[in-house]
């Protein structure tokens, strides 16, 4: 190397640096096309919505916007203004969160059983996944026929067995929410089953064999070996489901607006209002009263709630998720 002068010459080094820079730039451009997309359609709107949350705007034109500081946030959190309405939407979301443990317990059971049987495994898995490819709209149409008060299948079975028919959608906010939980558990079954089945299949059998030889009972093997081994997947599912259930919109919106008299928590507070439905209606349906600014503020409050819930969830998951397998 020493006797090759041109490599050490300043001109060569400069050229080399330039070439390296050009190469790096090229690589950056190749890999960052989606990044530009996210900057324009993801990051910029994020900043914009933060800015908007400090303004009162009833249309999309910024020249009509009025800067009001933190008033939007204050109004959203003040119980005498919109705070009560907003709190009730979180009550709805909180009740809907019950669907997370139920919606994961059943898939754990299915996936465990699927791994035990020797045949038709793929057939069963495919069948359980069918609801997952259905759109919410279709699920709503289908379940309308089930939970209809007068001619629904559920109520028909109930009256056939001499039970009192249940007003699933119009009775009270609680039954409305229970109906939503039933629907979402049914529709989320397949996705969780597929993931958990893959997790069960990935458990190292030698651990189970060893435990069996040592005389462990099958329930001991399940709770001490098999279940801890699938907790990473389960933890992932819990996190995703929690975030999704706080951001639930389509299901409640479509069920809520398809019925003539939706149930109310109290006067004027409808049970179909999840936080996102409420925010959507603030922005797009009642923009004369609320508008884009306060809608953004509400969305940021929701984002903070989601963030806190996720943090708590991660803290809790440190206790029960094990990465030792």
């Amino acid at each position: 190397m020493e006797n090759n002068i041109s490599i050490n010459s300043a001109k060569y080094q400069k050229k080399r640096k330039l070439m390296k820079f050009k190469d790096g730039l090229e690589n950056f451009l190749i890999s960052s096309l989606p990044v530009f997309g996210f900057l324009i359609f993801g990051a910029f709107p994020m900043v914009l919505s933060l800015v908007m949350s400090f303004f009162e705007m009833h249309d999309t034109d910024f020249s009509n916007a009025v800067f009001i500081g933190l008033d939007n946030y204050k109004n959203m959190l003040n119980f005498n203004v919109y705070g009560k309405d907003f709190l009730y939407t979180f009550l709805t979301a909180g009740i809907f969160m019950i669907s997370v443990p139920i919606g994961l317990a059943i898939p754990i059971f299915i996936a465990y059983q699927l791994n035990k049987i020797q045949f038709a495994k793929h057939f069963f898995r495919s069948v359980f996944f069918v609801p997952a490819v259905c759109a919410v709209t279709i699920i709503v149409i289908v379940f309308k026929m089930f939970i209809d008060e007068n001619s629904g299948v559920f109520n028909q079975i109930l009256t056939g067995l001499h039970f009192e028919p249940v007003k699933w959608l119009t009775g009270n906010p609680l039954t409305f929410n229970i109906s939503m939980i039933i629907v979402s558990v049914w529709s989320g079954l397949g996705y969780a089953t597929v993931l958990l089945q893959a997790a069960f299949a990935g458990v190292d059998e030698s651990y189970e064999e060893a435990a069996k030889i040592d005389g462990a009972s099958s329930s001991q093997i399940f709770w001490k070996i098999t279940f801890p081994a699938i907790t990473p997947t389960l933890g992932y599912l819990v996190t995703m489901r929690l975030i999704d259930s706080l951001q639930q919109m389509s299901l409640y919106y479509q069920f809520g607006f398809g019925i003539a008299s939706p149930p109310q928590w109290t006067e004027g507070l409808y049970a179909y209002n999840t936080p996102v439905v409420y925010i959507y209606r603030m922005i797009f349906a009642n923009s004369y009263q609320f508008g884009y600014g306060i809608g953004s503020a509400a969305a940021w409050i929701l984002a903070i709630v989601i963030f806190v819930v996720t943090r708590i969830n991660f803290k809790l998951q440190e206790k029960w998720v094990s990465y030792d397998f």
Binding site: G42, F44, M46, L48, I243, F284, S296, W300, A303
Partner: peptide
């Protein structure tokens, strides 16, 4: 990591501002 970070922000936040944009 910046890309993954944008995944963390809930979609509801940009509902209003995307429409405005």
């Amino acid at each position: 990591e910046f890309m993954i970070f944008t995944l963390m922000v809930p979609g509801c936040v940009t509902m209003s501002s995307s429409y405005v944009l």
